[in-house]
Amino acid sequence: MIALAGVTKDYGGVHAVKDLSLELPDQTVLGLIGPNGAGKTTVLNLMTGLATPTSGTIALDERRIDHLKPHAIAALGIARTYQTSRLFPQMSALENVVVGMHLHADDSLLGQLTGWPPTLARAQRLRTQARELLGELGLSERADALARNLAPGEQRRVEIARAIAMQPRALLLDEPAAGLNPVETDRLRAEILKLARERNISVLLIEHDMSFVMAACERIAVLNFGEKIAEGTPDQVRADPRVIEAYLGVEGVA
């Protein structure tokens, strides 16, 4: 379980995130929604070490992770994707996924330098696994295409495959459905939920597409101006007057 307790992040007097407490238990899918600028991506950056909390703590199980560097947090099993693609553009889709296996790659440097056959076989096995993972996301035919030449929807799925290749405990997705059409969105949702369930990965989903979030998540937390204004099941959140106010504004005001 990842637990944020009283987390505040200030950027020069502006509270990007204010006194946020949030729990992502194992094997759950939690949605994090809110209007633009609510601080959702900042929460992801705090959880992955790209930003350090001004106050408050973030813990993975009992272990504090809020002052660890990004690569150390990744090594503890927290993977993420980004709002705009951060694939390695000059590598093929397959190579991107193989880099995702960095923490588990067992082809030793000495073995590679000497061309030791068992090491080469292990390296080949990594590529086979990467190819299978891309296949699960329907990308078998695009495995050898350069990442920069992939369509945006394909890039999104390769990025998810790369994150899954880390064998993480938790996967944090930053607007995975942005820019996709409804058919692609439905397909992506099904793929994410299937992969997470099969591999016992908990998911934190930031998303603007309400139907996506409502259908995918067991629980949803709502941020507005950096503060959590509601949390509960999709039905509870949908009915919450403060959520409706945050999204639609208050009638009679303005």
């Binding site: 690569h71 090594a75 951060r86």
Partner: peptide
């Protein structure tokens, strides 16, 4: 190619 993404995969830059 992308240091931030690399670190996010557990690579120590």
């Amino acid at each position: 190619q992308d240091e931030v993404a690399a670190a996010g995969l557990g690579i120590d830059p």
